[in-house]
């Protein structure tokens, strides 16, 4: 049974959730659960996906839902380190336009709250 592992930290004023594993229909439940927990406590959320090698349609849709949740609550959201293959999928399927992406935490500026 595949599963994800999570690491939480703070970078500048960003609350960072780092994910390790493959996000697909088997793991998307725990991914969503972790995101929901973060939403309760964070105003500026950075999701670090550097260690995510594959993301299925369900994973992308989870990101989209998160984007809508943060937008409607006025929270800042950024995705970090999404690999080129996943970015390609996001580009050609239209997901890309919704998200703010940076390649690493170093690129983050302090979020305006």
């Amino acid at each position: 049974m595949s599963s994800l592992s999570f690491l939480e930290k703070t970078y500048l004023n960003w609350s960072v959730l780092s994910v390790d594993g493959q996000i697909d229909s088997k793991t998307v439940g725990e991914f969503k659960e972790a995101l929901d927990q973060k939403l309760l406590t964070s105003k500026c959320l950075a999701i670090d996906l550097t260690l995510v090698r594959f993301m299925s349609s369900a994973g992308l849709r989870a990101l989209l839902v998160l984007h809508h949740q943060t937008s409607s609550q006025g929270l800042s959201l950024v995705f970090v380190g999404i690999n080129e293959d996943i970015q390609d999928v996001m580009r050609v399927t239209g997901f890309h336009q919704h998200f703010t992406l940076v390649s690493s935490l170093d690129e983050l500026q302090p979020a305006v709250q």
Binding site: S56, S57, D88, V89, V92, T93, G94, F95
Partner: peptide, 19 residues
């Protein structure tokens, strides 16, 4: 015909084409 057909996202890719 979808670059994402192998992960079953041809519906999204074709809609993105139309858009």
């Amino acid at each position: 015909f979808a670059s994402t057909g192998t992960i079953g996202m041809q519906v999204d890719e074709f809609k993105q084409l139309v858009k």
